[in-house]
């Protein structure tokens, strides 16, 4: 058994971190560097198994700041590159860093297909609802009507809700956190690493320069507890500063109720089942928006299913073990041959 005890410092590279002061990326980097020692210890991963792959954008500079194997790819293609890394060597712990433009615009196709294949990579989606590195154009998650440099009169495009996309692509793991909630992010990332298959952890991140306070309506510390709910498997869906609000199922939808009012008791509150293969309630939780609902954080969906990399390795191993052809010479002489 290898000694897999590390500290956050073991994952910090010697490169100067060049994100803007106040950028939410700093907090996410911090959360990842805190999560990896726990992942290593729990899963018995040695340091050299961690590999970070990214696309293009502010967040995609991430691998340079990690003292791990790292690959800074091209715009949108991180999921495809990460897939190749994982298939080539399934023992690696592969992490993909993408922003909302990288993963959902130019890389949308690779994003949904990685999820559909359920390849065992961990995607961290930095969602700041803006293009930062190109200096402030709207992204596929920008709110409808958002005024940016390329939408001076407001966008006329409907944004994606990333979690809906994940579930629509038959995702097996989806979690959501806030950049400032370092412990929630860390908790989600450890669960993501423990999950076999594609995990998507969306981190709602603040771009202090081009889209400051985009998540503020619910993310501001002053009212965060009342406007978000942090879900944990097996626990009732209760939230609020006074822990007196909860979610119940009513008809075909969710409803926010106050415990102790109108006859609602804690027993009526839904208990979160992240492991339920049926995505129905997960879809409702993903879709909750302030002010009608609290925004859901934590691990929303975590269901086991066959992974691409394991299935491929299994096929290779099974066929290899019973093969009639063992090397290239035998291959060249297989089938119809004749002597002259």
């Amino acid at each position: 058994m290898e000694n897999c005890k590390y500290t956050a410092a073991d994952f910090k590279s010697d490169q100067e971190v060049k994100w803007c002061p106040g950028c939410g990326d700093h907090a996410i980097l911090n959360a990842v560097q805190k999560a990896l020692p726990e992942v290593a210890e729990r899963l018995n991963y040695t340091h050299e198994r961690f590999t970070f792959v990214s696309g293009i954008g502010c967040s995609s500079r991430f691998p340079y700041y990690m003292q791990t194997f790292g690959f800074h790819g091209i715009h949108g293609r991180a999921a495809a590159i990460a897939t190749g890394v994982k298939v080539s060597n399934p023992k690696l712990s592969v992490w993909q860093i993408s922003g909302d433009g990288d993963a959902l615009a130019i890389g949308g196709n690779h994003f949904i297909h990685a999820i559909r294949r359920n390849i065992d990579i961990n995607i961290i989606l930095f969602n700041n609802e803006i293009y930062g590195l190109t200096k402030g154009q709207y992204s596929p998650t920008s709110k409808l009507g958002k005024i940016t440099k390329t939408s001076p009169f407001g966008t006329i495009e409907h944004p994606f809700t990333p979690g809906e996309l994940v579930l629509g692509a038959r995702g097996t793991f989806y979690a959501r956190s806030l950049d400032v909630e370092i412990n929630t992010t860390k908790e989600c990332l450890v669960a993501a690493a423990e999950h076999d298959g594609t995990s998507v952890t969306e981190v709602l991140q603040n771009c202090v320069i081009f889209n400051d306070k985009t998540h503020d309506q619910f993310a501001n510390r002053e009212w965060r507890e009342d406007r978000t709910i942090t879900l944990r498997h097996g626990e009732p869906m209760i939230f609020g500063k006074n822990r007196d609000k909860g979610l119940v199922l009513e008809g075909l939808g969710l409803r926010v109720v106050t415990i102790g009012q109108d006859g609602w008791t804690e027993k009526d509150i839904l208990v979160h089942d992240a492991h339920n293969p049926n995505p129905g309630i997960h879809m409702m939780l993903v879709g909750m928006r302030y002010p009608d609902y609290p925004v859901a954080l934590g691990v929303i969906r975590d269901v086991p299913d066959k992974t691409y990399d394991q299935s491929l390795q299994k096929q290779v191993d099974e066929i290899h073990d019973t093969a009639k052809i063992h090397n290239v010479d035998e291959l060249l002489h297989s089938g119809d041959t004749w002597e002259l």
Binding site: R77, T83, G84, H113
Partner: peptide, 16 residues
């Protein structure tokens, strides 16, 4: 899923 993913998965595999 497309030509670009074809080569990008291969680049990832080459790195690994």
């Amino acid at each position: 899923e497309d030509e670009i993913a074809g080569i990008c998965t291969s680049i990832g595999a080459a790195y690994a």
